[in-house]
Design a binder for these strands. Structure first.
Lengths: 100, 100
DNA sequence: CGTGTAAGGAATTCTGACACG
DNA sequence: CGTGTAAGGAATTCTGACACG
């Protein structure tokens, strides 16, 4: 895993990096758009990838999109990825069967 | 500047990532081996590069090297870089003069 | 010299709530 | 719905000092 995906950034720094208020960042988590890790004590930890995601989310909201729409959009992307995975596996199965 | 050089990691996380105690990390700063940024409030912020550097430092200490030696070693590297820079500039100057 | 620890204070973050619209 | 804010508490970090070796 690269630096980009290590959850090491506190909410204060995430706020500085994105220009978003901590309130907004916490709210996007409440709406299930972002998933920081937590320290033992419960403080949030974000990755650089999360930080980029936060900016994306903020942009979409600025464009009038609602949080549930953003979440739905994300779920559809994930489904497509799942489907691609399944198709790939399907192809491999076909190839595997052909070897027999 | 890449993610690797952004100073976004608190000392607690730096401690987890390196396996070093916070005490050690602060001490290496006292000995001028590492240079974190500070938040407005004064809390330390490290980059991934710093984290790697911390591990290097700890390894050298484990091998019996003293902090002043590590610092001296680092200064020599920097001097060499400076010299290389100067030589490069010198070469460019020569090339420039030859054009005249 | 390098590191642990207890001490007291300051900065940071957390949650749940009220407000507005 | 998305966001600001004041509130009280908890987690995190800071510095300077004492300890050991």
């Amino acid at each position: 895993m690269s630096y980009k995906d290590k959850k090491v950034i506190g909410i204060g720094i995430a706020s500085e990096l994105t220009g978003l208020s901590e309130r907004k960042i916490r709210y996007y988590e409440e709406r299930k758009l972002i998933f920081p890790e937590r320290s033992k004590g419960g403080t949030r930890k974000y990755s650089f990838h999360d930080v980029e995601r936060l900016v994306e989310i903020a942009n979409k909201i600025e464009d009038g999109m609602q949080t549930f729409e953003i979440r739905r959009e994300e779920m559809r992307k994930l489904k497509k990825t799942d489907i691609r995975d399944k198709m790939l596996r399907g192809q491999l199965n076909v190839a595997f069967k052909m070897r027999k």
